[in-house]
Design a protein around this nucleic acid. Structure first.
Lengths: 214, 214
DNA sequence: TTTAGGTGAGTAACCACTCACTTACTATAC
DNA sequence: GTATAGTAAGTGAGTGGTTACTCACCTAAA
């Protein structure tokens, strides 16, 4: 079973090729959308023939679906957020989430794929959206609801409040990554601004004195 | 010059046809994107032959550009907002803007066209974005800056604050119109929530007592 | 009679996808 | 060690269908 590794291999293994095709086509689909990308371009980007692409994926649509299905949710972030949530460190909870989205070197591919798939009405769009974004709303809404019960947050609608915060973040990325609006602040600055603004809006007086006014 | 109007006209005037083609193709482009829409579909939707479409617009791309260029900014809204701004009625200023975007029967076509054109990298995308959205940022940022100087708002970054608010609104529409997330509040409720949350976040103590706590 | 409105029948290029076929690697028999 | 058989990796040259776009021609109204 353990295969030898020749130094100058001329044929890639099935796994390698498949991963290569997925990686190459993912950036193409993200850049041009599903209908805007041709199988010939995919083959060229993957460094193989069109025929081989169809040996690995029965149809262009199946390849697209494989890409969307591959992108999994992020566990390490949620663990860090959960820890901050247990300490009731509001600023850290929201800064972690915002900072994960808004940061130097963040990959714009996922956002473009998400938008394209939703606009083009691909069937896997909903699952993709659920894995990529829904997690945050549910988690944040739960945390906000809890903080309201504890008297730390004002009585706002938890789900709408969670969406408000995620809206600021998502819109920030949309402006910069899709509409190419130049940034006039550092990522850290922007995140701090959004977090402060949001927390000032939801925290009660007592909680604000602890965090929002340095 | 004044032409008679026969009751049973069989040929449309050039203007009428052109408008019909634009209207028909606009909804198709919004639904399927540029590459996802065929000229045959456009002709069928406009109720004429493909050849006639090309008599009016030299290329498919020129037709797309004509659609994006046609969509003009909204003057009556800005007038109403301006009036509220002169009275320093913060709640009304933000409620007007949010309510214009979030309301029953709002046309999702423009949002889809805007996103598709930006994602597909169409040249007119930037102008379209400027006409459709940029106005709000600049106007709001100016208003927020003024309110800060007057001591009514905290010292936030005016542009980031404006984007935060527009982000909540834009994201709300994105969730419902593109990602088909069901609404759990009425449009008016949602708008009121977003406005209250935002104003609580930016207003100083004195201003909050006047507006945000009924 | 003029002319703007309108079309059926193309065209070359391109699309997703197929197939007959070659090549490179490996396990095994000797 | 080497010959060989089996198989996974890989492709050039297509396939029928679709695309954006054209052109010669028609038709109704002023």
């Amino acid at each position: 079973m353990a295969t030898t590794r020749p130094t100058h291999r001329r044929k890639a293994s099935g796994r390698e090729r498949q991963a290569g095709i997925i990686a190459a086509s993912a950036s193409l689909f993200a850049a041009r959308g599903f209908t805007g990308t041709t199988t010939r371009e995919i083959a060229k980007a993957a460094g193989c023939s069109e025929a081989l692409v169809f040996k690995h994926f029965p149809t262009k649509r199946a390849l697209y679906a494989a890409i969307l299905a591959e992108k999994a949710p992020f566990s390490e972030l949620l663990a860090a957020v959960d820890e901050a949530a247990k300490k009731r460190d509001d600023a850290r909870v929201f800064t972690l989430i915002a900072g994960y989205r808004i940061r130097r070197g963040a990959d714009p591919t996922l956002l473009r794929l998400l938008l394209f798939s939703a606009l083009e009405g691909h069937e896997l769009s909903k699952m993709f959206f659920k894995n990529q974004h829904r997690v945050f709303y549910d988690y944040l809404a739960g945390y906000i609801g809890q903080r309201i019960q504890e008297g730390a947050f004002r009585r706002v609608d938890p789900l709408l409040a969670a969406r408000s915060f995620m809206g600021m973040i998502a819109h920030h990325r949309l402006l910069h990554e899709i509409f190419r609006v130049p940034a006039h602040r550092t990522p850290e600055d922007s995140v701090a601004n959004y977090v402060t603004l949001f927390l000032s809006g939801v925290q009660t007086g007592t909680a604000q004195e602890r965090h929002a006014r340095p």
